[in-house]
Computed example of a mutant assay.
Amino acid sequence: MGHAERSHALLGPSGAHRWMECPPSARLEEQFPDSTSEAAREGTLAHELAEIKVRHYFYTPDFGKRKYTTRLNKLKKEDLWQDEMERHTDEYLDYIKGTALNLKSAPYVAIEQKLDLTAWIPEGFGTADCVMVYGDTIHVFDFKYGKGVQVDAEQNPQMMIYALGAYAAYKILYPVKKICMTIIQPRIDHISEWSCTLDELLAFGEVVKEKAALAIEGKGDYHPGEKACRFCRAKAQCRARSDFNVKKAFGIGELPPLISTEEAGKRLIELRDVVKYQKDLQEWCLSECLAGKEVPGWKAVEGRSVRDWTDMDAAFDKLISTGVTLEEMLYEKKPLTLAQVEKMIGKKDFQEAVGEFIEKKAGKPTLVEESDKREAITNKVTAAQVFKEEN
Score class of each variant (00 low, 15 high):
5 E>M: 11
8 H>Q: 11
8 H>E: 10
10 L>V: 09
21 E>C: 11
23 P>T: 05
27 R>D: 03
28 L>K: 15
28 L>P: 01
35 S>R: 12
37 S>D: 08
38 E>L: 09
38 E>N: 12
39 A>M: 12
41 R>M: 13
43 G>C: 07
47 H>S: 06
49 L>V: 10
50 A>D: 06
50 A>I: 02
51 E>S: 02
51 E>G: 00
55 R>Y: 08
66 R>A: 15
66 R>K: 15
74 K>G: 02
82 Q>V: 10
87 R>P: 01
87 R>C: 01
90 D>G: 05
92 Y>Q: 02
93 L>P: 00
101 L>T: 13
102 N>Q: 14
102 N>G: 15
103 L>N: 05
103 L>E: 07
104 K>L: 11
106 A>M: 12
111 I>W: 00
111 I>F: 04
112 E>I: 03
115 L>E: 01
117 L>C: 05
129 D>W: 00
129 D>H: 04
139 H>C: 06
141 F>Y: 12
143 F>A: 10
143 F>M: 05
145 Y>M: 07
148 G>Y: 02
154 E>H: 09
156 N>H: 10
157 P>A: 06
160 M>Q: 13
160 M>D: 03
160 M>A: 10
162 Y>A: 01
172 I>A: 13
173 L>V: 07
176 V>R: 08
178 K>L: 11
179 I>D: 00
181 M>W: 01
182 T>E: 05
187 R>T: 15
187 R>F: 07
187 R>D: 03
191 I>A: 13
194 W>T: 05
194 W>E: 03
195 S>T: 14
196 C>G: 07
197 T>Y: 09
203 A>F: 07
205 G>F: 00
207 V>P: 01
207 V>Q: 14
209 K>W: 05
209 K>A: 06
209 K>D: 00
212 A>L: 04
213 A>P: 01
214 L>C: 05
216 I>N: 06
217 E>K: 15
218 G>I: 08
219 K>C: 10
219 K>Y: 13
221 D>R: 12
225 G>F: 02
227 K>G: 06
239 R>C: 06
241 R>G: 03
242 S>T: 08
244 F>C: 09
253 G>I: 06
254 E>V: 10
256 P>N: 09
259 I>M: 13
260 S>K: 12
275 V>T: 14
276 K>S: 12
279 K>E: 14
279 K>F: 07
283 E>L: 14
283 E>C: 07
285 C>F: 08
286 L>W: 06
286 L>F: 04
288 E>D: 09
291 A>E: 11
292 G>Y: 13
297 G>N: 10
298 W>F: 14
300 A>H: 10
301 V>A: 05
303 G>W: 12
305 S>T: 13
310 T>K: 12
313 D>S: 12
314 A>V: 03
324 V>W: 04
324 V>Q: 00
326 L>G: 11
327 E>C: 02
329 M>P: 01
329 M>H: 12
331 Y>W: 14
335 P>E: 09
338 L>G: 09
342 E>A: 14
345 I>H: 03
353 A>F: 13
354 V>Q: 09
361 K>G: 08
368 V>D: 04
371 S>Y: 11
371 S>K: 14
372 D>T: 08
372 D>G: 08
374 R>T: 11
382 T>D: 05
384 A>P: 07
385 Q>I: 07
386 V>H: 13
